[in-house]
Design a protein around this nucleic acid. Structure first.
Lengths: 204, 204
DNA sequence: ACCAGATATTGAACGACGTTCATATTTATA
DNA sequence: TATAAATATGAACGTCGTTCAATATCTGGT
């Protein structure tokens, strides 16, 4: 009728992910219900399971999209801010862009970790192009600060720096534990990034 | 029969929390089932709701215990490592002790954030004695590094430093996103703590 | 010691959920 | 068009958290 079978199959898969993404973005991961998704996507309840083994897999598809957007946006802003002679400033952009993304997409971002906790440890590290792009964007200015550094060490530092920024943003957004006040986040991120850079330079 | 009513009431409440804690510690928060708790605690299903408004409240009681233990242990190791003339070393102990607690109690620790995500933003900041003790333990060496610093700024730095360590440990334990490899965590925590301290000193 | 009235406890029943699978429908092939 | 294969359906199932009418227990006045 409307097209080839494989096309309609793929179209429904896309629709399911988009519907699910909208629900997670507006109501949170816990509001992602199979019956609601089916109704909104205009298919039968069981049809979801022709495209995804279970609801967690659908949620994972939503999370993969979010992660790609996040990594893409951060890497982009990061690269745009690359002043060749100012790696500190470039790295500070990492933090503020990450924080901004989290504030603009709090429930999509939460869903990534909510599902992660539910599924325990990840079996394999992320391997998307966006992920490598983001990692490379952090490694580049670190290499400028530490020209003779072991690449493996520099990558470990890059991961640690990103994780540190993630920790500040994460606890602040949840307002739990040892959270930094919201209006102090940007300042503290700059502070820690600058100190980190100075530490990198000094260890050379 | 066995004692006054109020005593038995309180005893059952304790039993419920202990049973729930054991379940979360061994099987994770998602394995905390009302019927299992009731059976294990030797009470009726409905009896749980005489002590807690819902299962999330029982989980929250477990989490409060975990958080107290965590904050207590970290603060203790932290204070024990206080070499008056070596605030860097003292602060590095913060990170390693936190990481060790997470590795020894992965599911109890996960439950704190799993429930947190489920319940959205916290309404009020934590106020337990252990929390203030931990905060004070971090503030003290920072004040040594920054004797004339504004107390509010120092507290913000303390929260940011803890959050940064939390981010490194958290992503590493989940093995997700930009996780630091497990055997590099201690080194990266030391690195970031040292750089942070140098940054604090330099900003004076 | 007895017995109401108050209080505490029980567990069957309810509704919502993810998931399954016998059935119905649509599509591809001859 | 006839027939087999592939695809979609949604009622039904089992498992949750939660409720509440029914039951058991306790308490204080006689």
């Amino acid at each position: 009728m409307v097209g080839k079978v494989s096309e309609r199959r793929e179209a429904l898969r896309q629709t399911l992910v988009e519907v699910a993404e909208s629900m997670v973005a507006h109501e949170g991961l816990s509001a992602l219900r199979a019956r609601d998704v089916a109704k909104e996507a205009g298919c039968a309840l069981g049809a979801i399971y022709l495209h995804f083994p279970d609801m967690d897999a659908l949620a994972a598809a939503v999370n993969a999209r979010t992660l790609q957007r996040l990594e893409g946006e951060v890497a982009e802003a990061f690269e745009a801010a690359q002043a060749r002679d100012n790696p500190k400033r470039a790295l500070a952009t990492l933090g503020t862009t990450y924080a901004q993304f989290v504030w603009e997409n709090p429930k999509l971002w939460s869903a990534i970790f909510e599902l992660g906790f539910r599924q325990g440890e990840a079996a394999e590290p992320p391997q998307s192009p966006e992920h490598f792009r983001l990692l490379a964007a952090i490694v580049a200015p670190l290499r400028a600060l530490l020209p003779d550094g072991d690449p493996a060490v520099i990558e470990a530092h890059a991961r640690a720096l990103f994780s540190a920024v993630h920790g500040i943003v994460s606890l602040s957004q949840q307002r739990r534990f040892m959270a930094v006040e919201r209006d102090q986040v940007a300042g503290e991120i700059s502070f820690i990034v600058n100190a980190f850079c100075d530490g990198v330079s000094a260890s050379k």
